[in-house]
Write a protein that binds this DNA or RNA. Structure first.
Length: 269
DNA sequence: AGTCACCTGATT
DNA sequence: AATCAGGTGACT
């Protein structure tokens, strides 16, 4: 599921579904999902609080409660958060769930258990969020700032883009797609990019994320939308060996930082 | 800066 | 059986 656009889709859906919701009870099925907190801590802190706001920071979902605490969910690779009509309905991979007073359920599902759900005070939350870099869809994200962040970095630009302490929210798919849109070789050192490419990359990041949010948020909100082809379609990610949509050369897959990077050797140089 | 470990499922 | 997976933190 989750890079920034998917987290944003989750947030928008939750906002609609949890307006005025009050948490009656919390249950942790998998203590690992709330580490370093304990199941008991999480279960006791949420009970009785109402949901005030739902926000996103990078890839993380933040549910602000009336008791001043915040449920912070990192979706990991396979996390999802959603409301079900009956709290007794328990999806196979529900790791934490909340019974709302309406008897609906708020579910944190996470097959691989690489995500985390915690309940934090503002101070604790700040510790978690402060290291994150700029929000790519905010006004603070400018070409000049991107240039400044990349300056001196000898990392491949693809790896640089996935560093959450620089720009928050890009993962393996959208980093690759942004580089394709900007026609930049993913292996280029981030610090070697000059004004023109930085400007293209900046614009591409915003464009790719915005597009993905539009299609993803739609798809999440309307049943069947995915099957109607409304989800974001990667141009290079997952397309190893297929012809590039622009130049027909074959898309390549390489390893960078232990992850697959897909790119077009013709367009991206 | 690169590799591995975390944990489990889907796909080949 | 083996490989891959939209993420990250700890460790060489």
């Amino acid at each position: 599921m989750p890079e920034l656009p998917e987290a944003e889709a989750v947030v928008r859906r939750l906002r609609r579904q949890t307006r005025g919701a009050v948490i009656a009870e919390a249950r942790v099925e998998r203590p690992r999902s709330v580490e370093p907190q304990t199941a008991e801590t999480v279960e006791s802190l949420a009970a009785g609080a109402s949901i005030k706001t739902v926000k996103r920071r990078g890839k993380q979902v933040l549910i602000r409660l009336s008791n001043g605490l915040t449920i912070r969910i990192h979706l990991g690779m396979t996390g999802d958060v959603y409301v079900v009509d009956d709290y007794r309905f328990r999806p196979v991979f529900a790791r934490v769930w909340f019974r709302l007073v309406s008897d609906r359920g708020l579910i944190f599902e996470d097959a691989r258990v690489l995500g985390h759900l915690n309940i934090y005070t503002d101070a604790e939350l700040a510790q978690v969020l402060d290291p994150l870099g700029v929000e790519p869809l905010s006004a603070e994200f400018t070409p000049a700032l991107l240039q400044q962040l990349a300056a001196g970095s000898r990392q491949p630009v693809k790896v640089f883009l996935m560093d959450q302490t620089k720009v928050a929210g890009l993962g393996n798919i959208y980093a690759a797609e942004a580089l394709f849109a900007a026609r930049i070789d993913p292996s280029r050192r981030a610090g070697s990019l000059r004004k023109t490419r930085i400007a293209r990359l900046h614009a591409a990041i915003i464009q790719i994320l915005s597009e993905a949010i539009d299609s993803t948020a739609t798809a999440y909100s309307r049943p069947g939308a995915f099957s109607e082809g409304e989800s974001f379609t990667p141009q290079v990610y997952g397309h190893e060996g297929e012809p590039c949509v622009l130049c027909r050369r074959r898309i390549r897959r390489i390893q960078q930082g232990g992850r697959s990077t897909y790119y077009c050797p013709g367009c991206q140089s």
